[in-house]
Design a protein around this nucleic acid. Structure first.
Lengths: 225, 225
DNA sequence: ACCTGAACACCGTTCAAGT
DNA sequence: ACCTGAACACCGTTCAAGT
């Protein structure tokens, strides 16, 4: 036991409060107890500080959550591009997934907040440049980018447990869910119930990305107008 | 001015409080002031009732929001199927969009909540049956369904102003956004800035759906394994 | 059966002080 | 320049009453 813990007036000579420290503390709260557990008070407590002190460094709770989301998104580790458009698009999508999987409890935050566009610029530049090299016009590249982003966001949102989902990953739950689906009596649902009841998120993500990449390449191969 | 307004003890002989009435009131609050404005107190006030009374009909705030989301999702008006798989998939996607556009402020709620799978069963049955008729196996139909759902959810989430977005719809904002994008100096971003700065949500939705439907049909035309 | 008063343990945020 | 005490106007929710 050393001198780092104190009661009462905390951290006299310790590191000062800073935007960076607040952000880190907030992310710790998210990772530990989920995004719903973030409050000015819980974050401040983790720093041994009064909640009101945070306002000297951050613009309020909404701004704090935006900053956390931006921070996670900024953690994307983009792949080196190979020049093979299909491989590169796949790899960028996977790096996006990796960034959100690093903080599962923060995923919904990242996918759901209106982010300051700047935060996501690096991956956007990467996708656009791959599409341009593959023959897309600057305009078409934007449409394709948005389609790809929709697939990625929609898939990761399902994985984060937000958004409409049907499948479940634990063996116990699958059987129950399957029985539930079969009881609906809807013919196509019943037929697909065994597959609808389970969900391998990684496989589904890859499937969806694969489909989107194939569609993209197919479209670029077809001369337009 | 008639006798419907009262102060103090409200609605003596009026319609009784009910789950249905609470749900409607909550949706009114969402439509009027956004999902963030929903509280047990604001909803109760709209019914001329104490907040605590709601607990006799609903399981708490989270359950209330789930119910509102389910209610909006339940308002989907599915198209009659034509037997043309591509047309049918497109039409189902558009009916999904229509349901969320009917309550724009509730869209994020619908797209973001872990819904009781039952709520979305009708559209799921529709999509699965179209895919089966188009030649998909029960298993492949599920993967394709999930991919399509991801595209739809991701696109609508962008439209709802949640999730990462770049474009803007008002002429005033577009110029500003464009300048901002050009200042980044990222070559592909700069090249596409004029298109990146604006976003026609309906067109982007249709584009993404079109791409996904094309990919789906292409895949079903290719014999698997 | 349904509604509420009193009460509790929380929130985010402002502002005038304190060092 | 940075932090906090006092204070305000909110939250969701429980429980013991009241009708």
């Amino acid at each position: 036991m050393n001198t780092t813990t104190r009661r009462g007036r905390p951290r006299k000579g310790d590191a000062r409060l800073s935007r960076e420290a607040i952000l880190t503390a907030a992310l710790e709260v998210v990772d530990a107890d989920g995004a719903a557990a973030v409050s000015m008070r819980t974050v401040a407590q983790r720093l041994g500080v009064d909640a009101k002190s945070l306002y000297h460094h951050i613009d309020g709770k909404e701004a704090l959550l935006d900053a956390v989301a931006g921070h996670v998104l900024g953690g994307i580790d983009l792949p080196e591009l190979t020049g093979q458009p299909e491989d590169d698009l796949r790899a960028i999508a996977q790096s996006f997934r990796k960034a959100t999987r690093a903080h599962p409890q923060a995923a919904a935050l990242v996918l759901t907040r209106q982010l300051p566009s700047i935060a996501a610029l690096a991956p956007v530049e990467a996708v656009l440049s791959v599409l341009r090299k593959a023959g897309a016009s600057p305009e078409e590249a934007v449409h394709l980018l948005r389609s790809l982003l929709a697939v990625v966001v929609g898939s990761l949102l399902r994985e984060a447990g937000a958004g409409p989902a049907f499948g479940v990953t634990d063996e116990a739950g699958i059987a129950h869910r399957r029985a539930e689906l079969e009881r609906t009596g809807l013919p196509a649902v019943v037929e697909s119930a065994p597959y609808l009841a389970r969900c391998d998120h990684e496989a589904e993500f890859s499937f969806a990305v694969e489909l989107a990449v194939a569609a993209t390449m197919q479209r670029l191969a077809t001369p337009r107008r």
